[in-house]
């Protein structure tokens, strides 16, 4: 792949909280445009930390980081990163802080310097594209878990990012909302890195799956499909295997 499309280039990134063993140790990652990567790993293996380092919310202790071909270290340099990369937080309650849905979705565009009308316009269009038309005046804390998740996604998409970092977007969602999220994500013309514990979900919408092991990322380019034979205590209920 050509270097023009190299969007995120992490080299030997280490990070640790003071007084505890490092969370990331010499982690390297190359992320190209049009990549759709799934990221798996046990709890506490540093997946979320990695996202926060990319967004500049946490500062890595050593290593080099280039995003969109430019090294980023200073707070100011992350402005562009945050404009072009959208991070979906694990907990939608963290993301939705405005009184109403419309205000929350318009928050990002307004920060980017759009006028009020433009921001409202793009917020409405984004909501519509996610089948959330009519949600504009809903109060954010009164939404259901699934609705909160989709609105959170809208708040990020409204900023028209080039890349999404999705931190366990399916956590706590029912099958119906999950299916909706899958269809939204696979129809988006965006590259993304997706953290999830659900292998089925990752198979469905990503091209490659990486795992976090020993504080680093292990790429598993060819995901091997294999068969399981197992008994079902709940075999009565219809379900799907990938």
């Amino acid at each position: 792949m050509d270097t023009n499309n190299l969007i995120i280039n992490l080299q030997d990134i280490s990070f640790g909280y003071p007084g505890s063993p490092p969370v990331l140790d010499k982690l390297s990652l190359k992320f190209f445009r049009y990549d759709r990567i799934g990221l798996m790993g046990p709890n506490g293996s540093g997946k979320t930390t990695l996202f926060h380092i990319i967004m500049g919310l946490l500062k890595h202790t050593s290593g080099s980081m280039e995003i969109f071909g430019k090294p980023v270290t200073k707070e100011k340099e992350f402005d562009e990163v945050r404009r072009k990369i959208g991070l979906l937080f694990q907990d939608a309650d963290d993301q939705l802080f405005s009184p109403t849905v419309l205000e929350d979705v318009a928050f990002g565009p307004l920060n980017l310097g759009m006028s009020r009308d433009e921001a409202v316009d793009i917020a409405k269009r984004t909501l519509e594209s996610l089948d959330l038309a009519g949600f504009e005046d809903r109060v954010t804390y009164k939404l259901s878990g699934g609705e909160k998740r989709l609105v959170s996604l809208a708040t990020i998409l409204a900023m028209e990012p080039e890349i999404l970092l999705l931190d366990e977007p399916t956590a706590g969602l029912d099958d119906k909302t999950k299916a909706r999220l899958i269809s939204i994500l696979s129809n988006l013309d965006l590259s993304f890195i997706l953290i999830s514990h659900e292998i089925d979900f990752l198979f469905e919408i990503t091209d490659s799956i990486y795992t976090m092991e020993n504080k680093r990322i292990v790429s598993d380019k060819e995901a091997h499909l294999h068969q399981h034979i197992h008994s079902h205590p709940h075999g009565l209920y219809t379900h799907k295997h990938k």
Binding site: L57, A106, L112, A119, V120, M159
Partner: peptide, 21 residues
Amino acid sequence: RSQRVHNAMICRGFRGKLYSL
């Protein structure tokens, strides 16, 4: 929670200015 909310706001380009619609 407040730190996570603040982080989420920063990620959406928050620079200390809030707007009313």
